[in-house]
């Protein structure tokens, strides 16, 4: 009984992990249709922000929850101004440009910090579930994923800014005609997507440590989740993360992490064969 509870917690944790790494990308790729290959490196920068600032004596919560998204969000805005804004609507070009950015960031961070793992100590202790122990941080990650989804949903659905953002992505000319500067909307949206990536990187830093190449391990899963989810940011991320995360983690428990990852890819393959527009291309089509 306790064991099945532990398994359930780990399943939810994996789902939460996918939500964390995919939300920022869902905003940038799902909403804006910009293929940001450097998304993994945005997460890496978030992780390094946490490592550096905690070394300088900053409280770990301030580092993870405020500094990481802030730093990467600002960086995202700079990237949007310098590179991305010239490439809207040119998918292949933006893919190449962000790939270059990704290589540059990995190289730059390697030169500055070295190609070694930097760690941050975990702010929570263990948590007893019957006779088992689960890391307290697991619950915090699950909570963070819920907060991610809720904040995106509430912003898009109930705020004016969210409405303008959605409208801009659908028809920027119309929005311009109504007196909104769509360039600013694009910039802010990209910055927010980057900030989510930075926050995700910061949240993951205490678990796996940070290393310049960590983005490469995350970007694949993030893209698969977003593509499988389809166009709707919230419903897509949520449904794809739930299906892919729980299946892959269940397989991991039954066998080992190799088959777990393989199962994730296999399920994504089947889903995309059946639903080429992603889950929200067919089901939940009217959701956000």
């Amino acid at each position: 009984m306790d064991y099945s509870l532990v398994v359930a917690i780990e399943l939810v944790r994996e789902v939460a992990g996918l939500i964390l790494i995919a939300t920022g990308l869902a905003v940038i790729f799902g909403m804006m249709r910009v293929i940001n290959i450097a998304h993994g490196e945005f997460m890496m920068l978030g992780g390094y922000t946490v490592v550096l600032t905690t070394k300088m004596g900053v409280n770990i919560w301030v580092a993870i929850l405020i500094l990481a998204p802030l730093a990467v969000g600002i960086f995202g805005v700079i990237v949007e101004r310098c590179i991305i804004r010239h490439l809207y609507g040119r998918i292949i070009d933006s893919l190449l440009a962000t790939w270059g950015l990704s290589l540059f960031l990995i190289g730059f961070v390697t030169v500055v910090f070295g190609n070694t793992v930097e760690g941050v100590s975990n702010p929570f202790g263990g948590f007893a579930v019957g006779q088992y122990k689960v890391a307290g941080y697991t619950f915090f990650l699950i909570f963070a994923a819920v907060a991610f989804i809720a904040s995106v949903y509430l912003t898009l659905k109930y705020t004016k800014a969210g409405l303008i953002a959605r409208a801009t992505m659908q028809n920027s000319d119309m929005v311009e005609a109504l007196g909104v500067n769509s360039k600013h909307v694009y910039m802010a949206t990209f910055g927010i997507g980057a900030a989510f990536a930075g926050l995700a990187g910061g949240l993951l830093a205490p678990i796996s440590g940070v290393v310049p190449g960590m983005g490469a391990l995350l970007i694949g899963k993030a893209f698969i989740t977003v593509v499988t989810g389809g166009a709707a940011v919230v419903a897509g991320t949520l449904s794809a993360s739930t299906i892919l995360g729980s299946i892959s983690q269940a397989v991991t428990f039954a066998t080992n992490p190799v088959y777990g990852d393989a199962a994730l890819l296999f399920v994504a393959l089947i889903l995309l064969r059946l639903l080429p527009q992603g889950i929200t291309g067919r089901i939940f089509t009217r959701s956000i």
Partner: peptide
Amino acid sequence: TNFGPTIS
């Protein structure tokens, strides 16, 4: 990098 299931 994630050893949660293994630890359980």
